[in-house]
Simulated scan of single mutants.
Amino acid sequence: MSGTSLDGIDVAMIVSDGEVVMRRGPSATYAYTLAQQALLRQALDGARGLTARDERPGILAEAEQALTGWHAEAVEKFAEENGISLSSIDIIGFHGQTVLHRPEQRLTVQLGLGEGLAQRLGRPVIYDLRAADVAAGGQGAPLVPVYHRALAAPLAERPAAFLNIGGVANMTWIGADGGLIAFDTGPGNALINDWCQRFAGEALDRDGRLAASGVANERVLARLLSHHYFTLPPPKSLDRNSFDSSAVEGLSPADGAATLTCFTAAAVAASTRLLPALPKLYVVCGGGRLNPVLMHELRELLKAPVIAAENLGLDGDSMEAEAWAYLAIRSLKHLPISFPGTTGVPAPLSGGRLAEP
């Protein structure tokens, strides 16, 4: 179960032994209301000054309590809609809401009361899956690559890459031998969404319409791409607020959206210089795959097939929620969920905390 973005809560069910995915079950997204989004935005602002992962000053305690309740309601609704008995669920993976991510300070903060969720639902919950990795010196993200590798098992094309374009964009590179390299490539939809909210009153650039009506400013784009992050070797990760839209201030709403959309794609393309071999196929999941302007930019810049997850019979919306279920199973079995090539942790490492009802 994933609530990493400000869009809503994704819930998905899988059947797996922590290695092979035997079956992908139903999935659903429960959108946040404007009031819920506003509370989470306040929490993001309130988290900027945190120095310890368990601090919950001011609005953060209220947001964490509310968020846990929203997730419980989402699971209950999901179970009812799909005729699933809660007692049949072996384990629930709970992402929570990331409000601060500073791995260089060995600090990552995800709101979400695992014990409270377990008590409410009467099922065991694995939560706080990033903390052990960050404490060991890893980036704490991305954690989905091991699930990407499981999904890529049938693919003939190698190396292959999975691109997850949510608020932040990340890439998983899967080598011919199953070797993993993963890192955040740069901004995903966050800057575009914030820009559209500000100038168009929309939470996102639906169908890329605003960007399609503008022209990317090459001078501003070059300034954005000069950020030192793009020269850092992987593994590396970003906070949602690591980049901001100040560089596009003064552009028209359309040109700003076009520039930010191009920036997301160009950051992905720049990241391929850090790989040992170029991918022969890119599989895109997350909300970014629904933006035709962004997908066009990716195809132009990457010079390789770029397809949506659905082209492989996968669900690009539910993949992260599925991954959290998969990670919860691996955590329960003490299997590694992060690796030197994905987060920079010194050795393969399991993680997560178990909350029993």
Rank of each mutant, 00 (worst) to 15 (best):
L349A: 02
L100C: 11
V248Q: 10
E19W: 01
A216F: 07
L238T: 10
I89H: 08
R24H: 10
A200H: 06
D239Y: 10
R158M: 09
A265H: 05
Q42K: 15
A72T: 03
V134K: 06
V11Y: 12
A269L: 04
D184N: 08
G175M: 07
L232T: 11
L349V: 04
R206V: 11
G138L: 00
D207G: 00
I174E: 09
G25S: 13
V284D: 01
H227F: 02
W195P: 12
F263C: 04
N241D: 15
V146F: 03
L278E: 14
P340Y: 01
T29K: 11
A35W: 02
R24T: 14
H95D: 02
A169P: 04
D45I: 08
L314M: 11
D315A: 05
S245E: 15
S350F: 02
V345M: 04
K333L: 15
D317M: 05
V306P: 08
L121H: 10
V75W: 04
G201P: 12
G175S: 08
A28W: 12
A153E: 15
D317R: 07
R106Y: 03
D7K: 09
R123Q: 14
S331R: 01
L86S: 11
F199R: 05
L221V: 10
D54L: 01
A141W: 07
S338A: 14
Q42A: 15
Q37H: 05
E320P: 07
G288Q: 01
D244N: 15
A31F: 14
Y147G: 00
E218Y: 02
G214W: 14
G341R: 04
